[in-house]
Design a binder for these strands. Structure first.
Length: 915
DNA sequence: CGACTTTGACCCGCGC
DNA sequence: GCGCGGGTCAAAGTCG
């Protein structure tokens, strides 16, 4: 832009100058810079004064922002006028020649103007001499002033140059840790990682390579970024988590270190379910994707997962083969090495080691990228780690707090659950995770088990809600246990095999965290002592002497050659080892219904074993509604059917439990449903895919187990006849009759001939709906928190704050649309949780055609940040107008233009968040 | 007999 | 160059 334009754009008024001064002080942040700008303004004003009339009449300058160019040589000046026009000028800050020549030009112009002025007065002879004197004196004065200005400008330029140089040096210095790993700041700059020189959970990456990789954090073009991390965890990051040295403990100790060390440290993204309540800091390490690191050798990314788990390994859904075990220095607990055997040649390894200080915590470190599609259970874990890692990445790229602070030791840190973080994926890919969520919710609501229809269910009292889900790990055969559906082997079962501890991972985490029961203690005693008590006299991998020598830094005596394994001692050892192994094998987790070594079973054998497996499945089948053995059972066909979801439900009439009908009524909200022809027979659902006749029409039912979409239901005759043989109670009030379906039918006909359809208890129904809404809310919250690590939940609202944004400022600025308001608004987002959750629910509940019954969604919902404070949610449009609503998932109530505006803001914010 | 675990030996990188 | 320590290999053992 030419200097003329610049002049034209600049107001001459004193007020504007003063205002500019203020703006300059904010924009440049440097007095010299201000003075320089001010001087420039003075010059321009003088020039324009001389031009007489070239100056615009209106006040133009509202804001002048001086931006330092990235290269430090260019200066960009923006003039923002009241009309909203914006003019820019680029000039070389160090091009003094330009300035001076400009000044020379200006002088020439000035002279010309003065001469003109003098020329105009030539006719007045009497005043000529006086005027000339005056003019010359003014000229001199102006020349002096200009000279002074030039000097000042030069001084300012010098100062600015020095300032910029210093700035650059500072920036270089601040960046230096990224290149110089010995400087701890680099890790702090990464945000989510804490640093000490102590070591990490993993082998310490080579510093140089680390340094080389570090700049790639957050980018997608690293080799790791293309692939997945651990369990298909997509990361482009090279992260290292290092822990402060606690009492000189060696890093492996620290790696497996317990909760106490972890808590309060910046580097740990100890993610905890908000629904589980913010646990005391000491419990936080019970679960969580805790760290990411890099194996510098092959540049594989690592993810460490901490889970309170009693079994030797955490079941993550993949098949692993142990290929080694070693006692790492500093932690007597042996570290086991596993490699993925899901597919041949899969490079993924994992290390499993118990936490030194809290041996109930299992630290599992994944490394590498699977070369195969993941099993269902593993996808959940993968998305967990992925989401958590992404979360950490996002947090790390934003400036300071976030994860660090979330994991820090504040009074009530906003811990986020890795399992909740997953929600973005579990909506689509992970029925398992979906299945796990309600249990979380239910835990948050006091572990209530809601039986919608008030059926007297014995199981309801005994089971955690998670047992309703097909992947929940109830492998027991006791009456209260059974997972409903056929998936007898849970993907997430812990290795313990104890039904109380073999819950799905989130459940397990929560349960063990909150209440380590006596049975868990007993479970400990069942464990191979070597794993848990390395100093035990029981023969183990490491002899105490050797261990002592190692931990004490003494070089152990040379290992004797392997002895032939016979003799009394060996027999004892073998016996105990055999016993241990026997127990271990029995307790070994198996994520797959069929043990891997039987994968290659011949088809003929498979046919033999299938009925037995099915019977086992049916044995555990429970109606998701009444929690009893389903009579006249139908099998719900959901989107996860092919993944093993087998929700059976009573298909009885209203004289009995009538569950399917109730289920339809409760869930469809008017959606048109048509039942499958009652006697369509699919003898083997696994082998007989749905036929057209079996499928119902479009249904928006949610599977009671996996929350997937229900496509229909069918009758599996063998299952039905098998389950009809199971005894259950009569559903009529006050009747204690127990019998098989046949007996029950006879009983009802004779004893309750006037039986009517059962009424749904309105209170229970409302409770159920509240639970659903709360679950939806949690889903939404998870989605949001997965997207924005620093989201803070305040009641219905989620604020995404950047550093230093005060909540009060946010509130006051939220709806201001001027420059500052926008700036502040960009720093935050307000999500109306109720609306988001409602949107989720509506999506599920609305049929394709009807979306009209939203208005009656004035639920009383348990809400609030921790889900404990009752909230009423009247639909209040006024309220919404104060809020910035999350883009795509927001309500439809808001006016379109406002929605568009908010969407724009959100995009901006998300962009900022992603950067 | 095959799949899997155990465990001593070995390899390799890093720091001194 | 050496020692240390983590990681891996592979023979031996176990189990169903």
């Amino acid at each position: 832009m030419s200097s003329k334009k610049k002049r034209a754009a600049i107001d001459l008024s004193r007020e504007a100058e003063e205002r500019d001064d203020d703006d300059h002080s904010a924009g440049a942040g440097d007095d010299d810079g201000d003075r320089r700008d001010k001087d420039g303004e003075v010059d321009k004003k003088e020039e324009q004064l001389k031009k007489q009339g070239k100056a615009p009449k209106e006040k133009k300058v509202v804001e002048v922002v001086v931006d330092q160019g990235g290269d430090g040589t260019k200066e960009e000046i923006k003039y923002r006028t009241q009309q909203g026009e914006e003019m820019e000028e680029d000039k070389q800050s160090n091009a003094h020649g330009d300035d001076e020549s400009d000044g020379g030009e200006t002088r020439a112009e000035d002279k010309h103007v003065v001469e003109d002025a003098a020329g105009n007065k030539d006719g007045d002879d009497s005043d000529t001499a006086m005027v000339q004197d005056e003019v010359s004196s003014m000229q001199e004065e102006m020349e002096k002033m200009k000279e002074e200005n030039r000097m000042l400008r030069q001084a300012v330029d010098r100062t600015m140059r020095d300032y910029y140089e210093l700035q650059m040096k500072l920036a270089a210095y601040q960046q230096q840790p990224a290149d110089e790993p010995k400087e701890p700041e680099v890790f702090l700059s990464l945000g989510a990682t804490a640093v000490t020189t102590g070591g990490s959970s993993f082998p310490e990456p080579k510093r140089k390579e680390q340094a080389a990789r570090r700049p790639s954090v957050g980018s997608d073009d690293t080799d790791d970024g293309r692939g997945s991390l651990g369990l298909s965890l997509s990361l482009g990051a090279s992260y290292e988590e290092e822990k402060p040295e606690a009492g000189g403990r060696d890093y492996d100790g620290a790696a497996a270190a317990g909760v106490d060390d972890v808590v309060g440290e910046k580097g740990y993204a100890l993610l905890e379910s908000s629904k589980l309540g913010a646990p005391p800091a000491g419990d936080l390490a019970a679960a969580g994707v805790t760290s990411q690191s890099v194996n510098p050798g092959n540049r594989k990314t690592r993810v460490s997962v901490r889970v309170r788990c009693q079994g030797p390994t955490m079941n993550d859904g993949c098949q692993w083969r142990k290929y080694g075990q070693k006692v790492a220095k500093g932690n007597p607990c042996p570290r086991a090495y596993y490699r993925c055997t899901v597919a041949p040649g899969c490079p993924v390894r994992k290390q499993v080691q118990r936490c030194l200080e809290d041996r109930s915590i299992l630290v599992t470190t994944y490394e590498g990228t699977h070369n195969h599609p993941l099993p269902v259970g593993a996808t959940a874990m993968a998305s967990t780690t992925s989401a958590a890692a992404t979360f950490m990445l996002l947090s790390s790229t934003s400036s300071s707090s976030s994860v660090s602070e979330a994991g820090g030791g504040s009074a009530a840190p906003p811990y986020l659950s890795p399992y909740l973080l997953n929600s973005t994926s579990h909506h689509s890919a992970s029925p398992l995770l979906s299945a796990a969520q309600p249990s979380v919710s239910s835990a948050g609501s006091g572990g209530q088990h809601l039986n919608l229809f008030g059926h007297p269910s014995m199981l309801a009292q005994q089971q955690g809600a998670h047992l309703k889900y097909p992947w929940s790990s109830d492998t027991s055969s006791h009456g209260g246990g059974g997972g409903l559906a056929g998936s007898k082997r849970p993907f997430w079962s812990t290795a313990g095999g104890d039904e109380k501890t073999a819950a799905s991972l989130p459940d397990n985490v929560g349960a063990v965290m909150s209440d380590p029961s006596e049975e868990i203690g007993a479970l400990f005693n069942l464990r191979p002592p070597a794993l848990l008590r390395p100093s035990s006299p029981t023969p183990s991998v490491v002899t105490p002497g050797r261990l002592l020598a190692r931990t004490a830094g003494i070089r152990p005596p040379p290992r004797p050659p392997r002895r032939p394994r016979f003799g009394l001692e060996y027999q004892k050892m073998a016996r105990s080892a055999r016993a241990r192994r026997h127990v271990a094998r029995q307790l070994r987790p198996n994520p797959y219904p069929i043990p891997s070594h039987r994968w290659k079973v011949k088809e003929s054998n498979r046919k033999k074993t299938l009925p037995a497996l099915q019977k086992m499945d049916w044995e555990d089948a429970k109606c998701s509604v009444c929690m009893e053995f389903p009579h006249n059972a139908v099998l719900i066909l959901c989107s996860s059917h092919d993944k093993g979801c087998r929700p059976y439900m009573c298909g009885t009439s209203y004289r009995h439990s009538n569950c399917l009908d109730q289920f339809k009524k409760a869930y469809t909200k008017g959606a048109l449903l048509e039942e499958v022809p009652a006697n369509s027979v699919g003898t083997n659902v696994d082998s007989a895919p749905l036929t057209a006749g079996e499928k119902t029409e479009s249904i928006d039912l949610a599977c009671p187990l996996c929350r997937g979409k229900v496509k229909g239901w069918t009758v599996v005759e063998p299952a039905r006849s098998y389950l009809n043989g199971k005894k259950r109670t009569c559903m009529q009030d006050g009747c204690s009759f127990v019998g098989t379906y046949k007996e029950l039918r006879k009983h009802v006909r004779s004893e309750h001939p006037l039986a009517k359809p059962r009424e749904v208890d309105p209170a229970l129904e409302q409770k159920w709906r509240l639970l659903e809404i709360e679950r939806e809310r949690q889903d939404a919250l998870s989605t949001i928190t997965a997207t924005m690590g620093r989201a803070v939940v305040l009641g219905d609202y989620v604020l995404d704050l950047e550093d230093g944004v005060d909540l009060e400022d946010v509130e006051s600025d939220a709806d201001v649309d001027d420059g500052r308001g926008t700036e502040n608004t960009r720093r935050m987002l307000l999500f109306i949780m109720r609306q988001v959750a409602q949107h989720h629910q509506n999506q599920r509940h609305q049929s394709a055609t009807s979306a009209s019954d939203n208005a009656d969604d004035d639920y009383l919902v348990s809400g609030g940040a921790n889900g404990t404070t009752p909230y009423s949610y009247p639909l209040d449009v006024e309220d919404e107008d104060h809020m910035v609503v999350a883009g795509g998932r927001s309500t439809d109530v808001i006016r379109p233009e406002r929605r568009r505006r908010r969407r724009r803001r959100n995009r901006g914010r998300l962009f900022l968040g992603a950067n």
